[in-house]
């Protein structure tokens, strides 16, 4: 099956202050299948946001192409919805106004009732029924982020892109929003690429976790397949047999691997096909399954 998203030989360089160039990353390859929930983790500054913004079309990569559903991406589009880290709601519009703005952009010919009805449906979906007439300033951080999610969902995108969507929230709110996002994405089969710093969040939400090494010249070290069962729940997840194997694997990478990977590149490492790894009982230790990507 052809992947829905395919990043091919992506590079991003910025001119250095004293002349020359800094390479944030280069020769970066990544593919995401339809319906997959992919999390990208890596240290601050490695280029995660740059990858996501390129995918959104908000930034142009210096080299390489991004293909979504068979077409090259050169500009932002309604097939990809972005959930911004700082929610980016329009403060002069109400909750309904913010969502309706997106809906009427997606369906410019829709009648007002139609727009309102579609907006109401997603507002209900994210649990904001009753707050339609409120302005963002009257909402809590969690509610604002819910509006952001509703706005993204409302345009029925092929792909949802999230840049640390919950990092500014308290643990309790974050937890309930994670539940919400996971429920919605599972129900609708939504394809998601999400950036996070939170290992537990990645373990709960992701089907695959992309590990990025430290910048500059960051690489995709490996892609970790989530061994936890699909019907996992956030609070009971730690009782799953593979929980610690996965968690230790991710934390080991963040603590040491992200830094040392560059100096100990495995002999068979191929940037076009980063190794697919599935930690846990089903395959003790690290198992290389390079052909798994193809087989998918």
């Amino acid at each position: 099956m052809r992947p829905l998203i395919s990043l091919e030989s992506l590079a991003k360089r910025y001119p250095k202050a004293g002349g020359g160039e800094t390479t944030i990353f280069e020769n970066l390859w990544l593919s995401v299948n339809k319906g997959e929930f992919v999390c990208i983790i890596g240290h601050s500054g490695c280029g995660k946001t740059t990858v996501l913004n390129s995918l959104a079309g908000l930034e142009r990569p210096s080299e390489g192409v991004i293909i979504v559903d068979g077409k090259e991406i050169t500009a932002p589009g309604l097939d990809r919805a972005m959930i911004f880290q700082g929610h980016a709601l329009l403060p002069w519009k109400t909750v309904m106004g913010n969502v309706a703005f997106a809906v009427s952009s997606r369906w410019p010919k829709a009648s007002r009732e139609e727009v309102e009805r579609k907006s109401q449906a997603v507002i209900d979906l994210v649990g904001l029924t009753g707050s339609e007439r409120k302005r963002p300033a009257e909402l809590s951080g969690g509610m604002k982020q819910r509006v952001g999610i509703a706005r993204a969902l409302s345009i029925e995108p092929k792909i949802m892109l999230m840049d640390e969507p919950f990092s500014a929230l308290d643990a309790l709110t974050r937890g309930s929003l994670q539940d919400e996002v996971r429920r919605i994405c599972r129900e609708t089969g939504q394809t998601v690429v999400m950036i996070t710093h939170d290992v537990d969040e990645a373990m709960y939400l992701a089907d695959k976790v992309v590990l990025m090494t430290n910048g500059p010249a960051a690489m995709v070290a490996e892609i970790v397949e989530n061994p936890l069962p699909p019907d996992r729940d956030r609070t009971g997840m730690h009782k799953q047999p593979d929980y610690y194997a996965l968690r230790n694997h991710l934390i080991d990478f963040l603590v040491t691997g992200s830094r040392t990977f560059r100096d100990h590149i495995p002999p068979k490492y191929d940037p076009m096909k980063p190794p697919l790894v599935r930690p846990g009982a089903t395959s003790p230790g690290t198992m290389q399954r390079e052909d798994a990507l193809q087989a998918h």
Binding site: A56, L58, A75, P76, L78, M82, F84, I155
Partner: peptide, 12 residues
């Protein structure tokens, strides 16, 4: 810039 980006992603 955020708000302009919202408009851009919505192809406004």
């Amino acid at each position: 810039k955020e708000w302009l980006n919202v408009a851009r992603t919505l192809e406004v």
